[in-house]
């Protein structure tokens, strides 16, 4: 009951999704649409599960009061304000929810990513020490792409931006394509193993 039924559900759900591609007619096309909408709904509940876990962790911190416990109040208050405002006025343009998104959420999210520019600079110092021919290739292609995308590159040599674009369009694309093919083959084999019940690790735990 605890293992067999989930395996049967996985098999049926997986096979319907595969079969609807080869037989795009009723009942498989209808079943695919039905399963897609169910999938979306259950995914939202998975997010609710994540929220529940977040509350569990932070209410425990409030009870035990370890160092920096008051940051949990900030987190829960931030959630409560944004959630309440969103549920009352909705997420449309010009609502208080929209105001909080543009003036609080978006600046913090952009700055978090912008902060990575500084850490990338220190990471590049470590990555760009050309100790091997492979590291040299990495260094040269990164520098050509970066210089090709700033006015300085054009100032040094007007062909540098074109060379940067060429690297992005051909050798880079070839490498990315090889990685994509490798990933696709890996996903296909793993998906098959899951549908056929050979791969069961997702069922472990209580």
């Amino acid at each position: 009951m605890k293992k067999q039924i989930p395996l049967i559900i996985t098999f049926i759900a997986g096979m319907v999704m595969v079969l609807q591609f080869f037989i795009p007619h009723r009942p498989f096309s209808d079943l695919q649409q039905l399963f897609n909408s169910w999938f979306l709904i259950i995914t939202v509940f998975a997010m609710i599960l994540g929220l529940g876990n977040l509350f569990k962790v932070h209410t425990k911190r409030l009870q035990r009061r370890p160092k920096g416990w008051w940051y949990s109040i900030v987190l829960l208050a931030g959630f409560a304000i944004m959630f309440t405002v969103g549920m009352i006025w909705g997420p449309a343009r010009g609502t208080p929810f929209d105001y909080l998104f543009w003036n609080v959420h978006l600046p913090m999210s952009s700055m978090m990513f912008a902060l990575l520019a500084f850490f990338v600079a220190s990471a590049s110092y470590r990555a760009f020490r050309a100790r091997t021919p492979e590291a040299t290739l990495l260094l040269v292609s990164a520098i050509l792409v970066m210089i090709g995308r700033v006015p300085l590159g054009n100032y040094i040599w007007d062909k540098l931006p074109l060379i940067g674009d060429w690297i992005m369009s051909y050798p880079n694309m070839a490498g990315q394509r090889a990685i994509m093919i490798g990933i696709a083959l890996g996903i296909v084999s793993t998906s098959l193993r899951i549908i056929l019940g050979i791969e069961r690790t997702y069922l472990s735990g209580k």
């Binding site: 021919p133 292609s141 050798p171 490498g175 090889a178």
Partner: peptide, 18 residues
């Protein structure tokens, strides 16, 4: 070698985006 060029180009591109 091709993978290294791809990683380098992606790295440079990411740096510029950040």
């Amino acid at each position: 070698w091709f993978l290294m060029i791809a990683f380098g180009a992606s790295f440079g591109y990411t740096v510029m985006a950040r």
